[in-house]
């Protein structure tokens, strides 16, 4: 914080490189702890064994199919949740009466866990992928909605006054006032929803099965006592999360280039 805000880009300042260092340090820690006997290697194998199990998985066609299946379910669920969350959030958030009317219902529905909805999700649909999607959409919709609801009310008073004095119409106010204010909240909402959706996709595959995804492979690895492959599959889930974050950060840089949070780091 004390350094000047003008980005000083030195060799050791590359964010991607630093991030890699962070991950590698964590991997090294998980290599050392089991080897030193702090954690039992039988239940938490050292990183090197997980990596070699991961490389084994890379060589299997069925693994890539599973990755593809999981990513498809995840993206589908995420897109539905994000679009629904943004649209409903802006509509509800801009009309105070609607906001008041829906508040208790939203708060009632939000904390209902997917495990409780599992039988209903299974009964409602004939295809397993749809049951899983229901759980994914249900869980990841709320983070987006809540972020948008708060974002919409965070409009700067001066900016609103200005917009009103310039007599911007409803559409333009939405476009130039509401949307830019909400966007940082939306981006955080998407990042939250992305990981919730991924967790739910894999949990759904684990519990419901029938879609040949990573979760199903985790279930098989668990019941076959192949601990390293189980962790290898969990690592895959984590890696998908990292990639999702890289993608949302990229998008953020494009759509939020003007925002102080982004501007500071990536000078225009």
């Amino acid at each position: 914080m004390t350094t000047p805000r003008v980005a000083r880009r030195r060799a050791g300042d590359n964010p991607a490189l630093l991030g890699l260092v962070g991950i590698l340090a964590f991997a090294a820690l998980l290599e050392v702890l089991p080897r030193a006997g702090v954690l039992p290697a039988e239940y938490l194998p050292p990183t090197s064994r997980i990596v070699s199990a991961l490389l084994d998985e890379f060589g299997r066609g069925s693994f890539w199919q599973a990755v593809g299946g999981t990513i498809t379910t995840w993206l589908l669920g995420l897109v539905i949740a994000v679009v629904a969350g943004i649209v409903l959030g802006i509509v509800i958030g801009s009309v105070p009466a609607l906001r008041l009317a829906t508040a208790s219902t939203v708060e009632f529905l939000r904390p209902i866990p997917s495990v409780a909805l599992l039988p209903l999700a299974v009964v409602l649909f004939s295809a397993p992928i749809r049951s899983i999607l229901l759980l994914v959409v249900y869980a990841s919709f709320w983070p987006v909605l809540i972020q948008v609801l708060h974002g919409v009310t965070d409009i700067d008073p001066v900016a609103r006054e200005t917009a009103l004095s310039y007599r911007l119409d409803r559409w333009r106010r939405a476009r130039y006032l509401v949307w830019p204010t909400t966007l940082p909240y939306v981006m955080t909402g998407i990042r939250l929803a992305a990981s919730v959706a991924l967790v739910l996709t894999i949990t759904g595959e684990l519990l419901i099965g029938g879609t040949k995804g990573i979760g199903e492979r985790i279930a098989v690895a668990q019941s076959s006592i192949t601990v390293p492959s189980m962790y290898a599959l969990i690592v895959v889930s984590g890696l998908i999360g990292v990639l999702a974050n890289v993608a949302t950060r990229r998008a953020e840089r494009l759509v939020l280039a003007w925002h102080p949070a982004v501007r500071r780091e990536f000078p225009l």
């Binding site: 300042d13 590359n14 964010p15 991607a16 630093l18 991030g19 890699l20 260092v21 962070g22 991950i23 964590f26 990981s195 991924l198 967790v199 894999i202 949990t203 684990l206 979760g215 969990i234 889930s237 984590g238 890696l239 998908i240 999360g241 990292v242 999702a244 974050n245």
Partner: peptide, 16 residues
């Protein structure tokens, strides 16, 4: 920059 990818990694791991 150092911890963000790691946190993203941990966030995407299903608790069960």
């Amino acid at each position: 920059a150092l911890v963000e990818p790691l946190l993203e990694f941990l966030r995407a791991i299903p608790p069960p």
